[in-house]
Simulated scan of single mutants.
Amino acid sequence: MITIGLTGWGDHDRLYTTPVSPRDKLQEYAAHFPTVEVDSAFYAVQPQRNALRWVNDTPEGFRFIVKAYQGMTGHQRGEIPFESKEEMFHAFIESLQPYIETKKLGMVLFQFPPWFDCKKENVNYLRWCKVQMGDIPCALEFRHQSWYRTGFREGTIQFMKEEGWIHSICDEPQSGEGSVPIVLDSAGSDTVLVRFHGRNIHGWQKRNHANWREVRYLYRYNEAELREWAGFLKDLEKSSKHVYAVFNNNSGGDAADNAKQMIQLLGIEYEGLAPRQLGLF
Rank of each mutant, 00 (worst) to 15 (best):
I4L: 12
G10S: 14
D13V: 07
R14F: 11
Y16D: 07
T17S: 11
V20G: 07
P22N: 10
Q27E: 15
Q27Y: 13
Y29Q: 05
A30G: 08
A31G: 10
H32N: 12
S40Q: 06
F42L: 02
V45D: 06
V45N: 02
P47D: 10
N50M: 13
L52V: 00
V55S: 00
E60K: 14
F64I: 10
F64R: 02
I65K: 01
Q70S: 07
G71P: 00
M72N: 07
M72R: 02
F82C: 06
F82D: 01
K85S: 12
E94P: 11
S95F: 01
L96A: 03
Q97A: 08
P98Q: 03
E101I: 06
G106P: 06
G106S: 10
L109D: 05
F112D: 03
D117T: 15
C118P: 08
C118F: 15
K119D: 10
N122M: 07
N124V: 09
L126P: 02
L126W: 04
R127I: 14
W128L: 04
C129G: 00
K130C: 05
M133S: 10
I136V: 08
E141K: 03
S146R: 05
F152I: 14
G155Q: 14
T156Y: 06
I157V: 08
F159D: 05
M160L: 11
K161E: 04
E162H: 09
E162G: 05
E162F: 09
E163S: 10
G164V: 05
I166F: 08
I169C: 03
C170N: 11
Q174A: 13
G178A: 11
P181F: 04
I182V: 13
L184M: 12
D185I: 00
D185A: 04
D185T: 00
G188H: 06
S189M: 11
R195H: 10
F196M: 13
F196I: 00
G198K: 08
G198R: 11
R199T: 06
H202T: 14
W204D: 01
N208F: 15
N208V: 11
N211F: 10
W212P: 07
V215A: 03
Y221E: 01
Y221W: 08
E223C: 11
A224V: 15
L226V: 01
L226A: 07
E228W: 15
W229D: 00
L233A: 01
L233D: 00
K234P: 04
D235T: 13
L236H: 02
L236A: 00
E237M: 05
S239E: 11
S240C: 09
V243F: 04
V243N: 00
Y244T: 04
Y244F: 13
A245Y: 03
F247L: 01
N250F: 02
G253R: 08
G253C: 02
D254G: 08
A255E: 01
N258I: 11
K260W: 13
K260V: 08
L265D: 10
I268F: 06
E269Q: 12
E271D: 13
L273G: 00
L273M: 10
A274I: 13
A274Y: 12
P275A: 02
G279E: 11
